[in-house]
């Protein structure tokens, strides 16, 4: 019988050591990694015939838009739901993202991504979520096109996994948070608070920690031009530094 074979790195809780287990499921056309993991959890028996605890992993949308199901598949960080089994070499090796603390099996704690978004002030300051009887200023279709690319970041963590500068101990905010600054700074009223955001990424853990290795942009499942954003921010920071020197903060 044709099968799909997996090797899965497992860990029972944050403090216990990891170990590997192998599973096989009957081949079916059209499987993605999430749908295959669903078959495994229904009947978690290893290749050796041992009944084990089901593999824990994260997923929600199954359409590559919620960012939940990131894991390392055959060595590459990517979304499990949009990875078709037919495109993979077997046995398929599944590991949790290594840059975040493991919670259990393939689940990791990515709360740092969200606290870094706070650190860089990735929001637009509005007076309140009530009606002010007008919208924001117009945006040209060209500017929209650029901005839209960045607004699709789903905080999946793949770029951080690939980035050599981002790590367990380092406090570098990582490519996605930087790209969020690029996006907020481009909003017609978001630019009013550009200085605060730039100062946030001029501090420790900010832009200067990026070694320009370009790994991030290669793995982003949303093809977000992270290094372009980093380049643009570099120029914005240069200008900002000149302004700061002249004592002319906006």
């Amino acid at each position: 019988m044709k099968t799909i074979d997996f090797q899965i790195r497992r860990q029972d809780d944050p403090y216990s050591p990891p170990y590997w287990q192998s599973f096989s499921i009957p081949y079916r056309n059209g499987h993605n990694v999430v749908s295959a993991l669903m078959i495994i959890r229904e009947n978690p028996i290893t290749q050796e015939g041992h009944h084990v605890d089901p593999v824990a992993w994260e997923f929600n949308c199954m359409e590559e838009v919620c960012g939940a199901c990131s894991m390392v598949i055959n060595g590459h960080p990517r979304q499990a739901c949009s990875t078709l089994v037919d495109t993979l070499e077997q046995p398929i090796r599944l590991e949790p993202l290594s840059k975040f603390p493991v919670i259990r099996d393939l689940m990791v704690d990515r709360s740092r991504i969200f606290s870094d978004l706070k650190k860089v002030r990735a929001w637009i300051e509005i007076d309140g979520a009530w009606d002010i009887h007008q919208g924001a200023p117009r945006v040209s279709p060209e500017a929209w096109k650029d901005n839209y690319l960045y607004s699709r970041c789903m905080s999946c963590g793949c770029c951080m996994e690939a980035c050599p500068q981002y790590g367990d101990t380092e406090d570098f905010v990582g490519p996605a948070s930087l790209a969020a600054v690029r996006l907020m700074n481009a909003h017609p009223t978001g630019q009013y608070h550009k200085t605060q955001r730039l100062h946030a990424i001029m501090a420790e853990g900010g832009l200067s920690d990026c070694g320009n290795a370009q790994n991030c942009v290669r793995v982003c499942p949303k093809e977000i031009p992270l290094t372009t954003a980093i380049g643009e921010l570099g120029r914005q920071i240069t200008l900002q530094m000149m302004k700061d020197l002249l004592g002319k903060s906006e």
């Binding site: 509005i126 979520a129 009530w130 919208g135 929209w144």
Partner: peptide, 11 residues
């Protein structure tokens, strides 16, 4: 319009 003010990238 409020969404627009929040930064939503409408086409």
């Amino acid at each position: 319009h409020t969404f627009e003010r929040m930064g939503v990238t409408f086409s």
